[in-house]
Design a protein around this nucleic acid. Structure first.
Lengths: 264, 264
DNA sequence: ATTCTTTAGACTGTTTACAGTTCCGCCCGG
DNA sequence: CCGGGCGGAACTGTAAACAGTCTAAAGAAT
């Protein structure tokens, strides 16, 4: 009995909109150039990938609306958008739930990402400009420096930038968007990138080889290296979480999860 | 100023809900098991792929809502969902427009589809059951029959089923969904599949070879054949529309399109 | 005649209100 | 003691109302 049977409330009192002194987020928004729903969606996505909204948690429309200072409409739109990107699941008459990525699905996404990355690398080898190749080179150097000083976060950022840069070199906007979306989805599982130093060094060596293949214009080699990198990245990920299944159930913080919390 | 300064709104015909004698679809819907927005999205998608909603046309929320017998909320949701799938573009304060796929984007999608299909074929070679192989075989036979009797529609259905079956054999739900989505998006461009008989025969020969590779469990060969099939399919598509650019602009029917109709 | 300004209209973005459903606790009968 | 209806609260789905924006046509000035 971790919590009282009382209904969970994000806001304690919150009787109505009559009082004006304690309201948390009633601030006027200064002419947003984009629809509110999009903004809300981005914020919700950040909240989810950030872990503030735990896996399996329900997105209470009214609570979120009050918390974000908007009405339910944009929140609904945002939830539906996030459903399309796969971050939440919507069930009729029950609401939107933060999706918990099963390991199996993550493996599927890794496969797709590998194919996409291989395609991008091959294209990049044929189409990348010298400037882009140089950018890749400096990114690899930056990652090496991050590894040397044990900067996991820096490595993570460099890694993301490196992959994104290759996708950009491929001149395939669709693939670029798709890859970004899938990669974000993977973040559902590995909340925080806590790679081991050995892993980082290994990955960056692969990066260097791939970069050279691209710079040399060898599409076939680049593709092979990229696919191998994706496969090895998957293996490294599995290794970093214990090599075996380890379903993400022990991580569910029971404090927030008090209902059945199933996400079919 | 007690007298109405200007509160009286002159009724611009067909604006308010004053008249309702000619309402086309006010019928009560019998408890739909899915949210209305989803249903509306599916109907809109059909309308778009069907060509009823021409390229570049604006989706008038109120008109569509009345026409479908629902309110604007679900229509908005549907439009946003279709935006996520890439069938429409939404512009702030201007509305949702049926997207016209440029040839360049279609080529990008063809590339992605090729990578995805290659991945699926390789997996299928390793994981397909004998029953599934048999299903593929009968599909190829059915397509052959359709070709023999000049049944373009039948061939098209068989072709879709064949590809979908391979994706299903790959045991990668994510890839399956993605492939379907991308393929549907391609339908924006080639409204009606009017392949030439020679094209159909060529494609089916490739199907047969691919099928054999999958049945034999040769993943590498299957992947190569699948990717080649995708590439050749792209070439055939280009050939069937004139081999050159031919931008899809002449299709804008002026009757419905009275504005500038640009879709950036 | 042409161009700039004004002004009305239509439509989208957002909010608010209502109806139906689901879920939880509670009471009652076995 | 336990299982099964029963009522109420909370929440979602949907509809309608409100407010701001963009478009476009009409009028005035050059």
């Amino acid at each position: 009995m971790a919590d009282a049977p009382a209904p969970q409330r994000l806001e304690p009192a919150a009787s109505s909109r009559g009082k004006r002194h304690g309201k948390p987020v009633p601030k006027r928004r200064p002419r947003l150039p984009q629809p509110l729903g999009l903004d809300v969606a981005q914020r919700l996505e950040a909240l989810i990938l950030d872990g503030t909204l735990g896996a399996g948690e329900r997105l209470n429309e009214v609570a979120l609306a009050r918390s974000l200072g908007v009405s339910r409409g944009p929140v609904r739109e945002a939830a539906r958008a996030l459903e399309k990107t796969g971050l939440v699941t919507v069930i009729m008459n029950r609401g939107a739930f933060v999706r918990s990525l099963r390991l199996e699905e993550a493996m599927e996404i890794y496969e797709i990402n590998g194919a996409l990355f291989g395609l991008a690398a091959a294209n990049a080898a044929e189409r990348a400009t010298p400037a882009e190749a140089q950018a890749l080179r400096s990114l690899v150097a930056a990652m090496q420096a991050a590894i040397a000083r044990g900067d996991r976060e820096g490595f993570f950022r460099g890694n993301s930038a490196f992959h994104a840069c290759i996708l950009a070199c491929a001149r395939n906007r669709e693939a670029e968007a798709l890859y970004g979306q899938l990669t974000r989805k993977l973040l559902l599982l590995r909340r925080r990138s806590f790679e081991q130093p050995a892993h980082m060094a290994e990955a960056n060596a692969e990066h260097a080889a791939l970069l050279e293949a691209i710079a040399a214009g060898d599409a076939a080699l680049a593709r092979g290296l990229a696919e191998a990198h994706a496969r090895l990245g998957r293996v490294r990920f599995l290794d970093s979480i214990g090599h075996a299944a380890m379903p993400p159930q022990p991580a569910t913080r029971g404090a927030k999860a008090h209902r059945k919390e199933e996400t079919p």
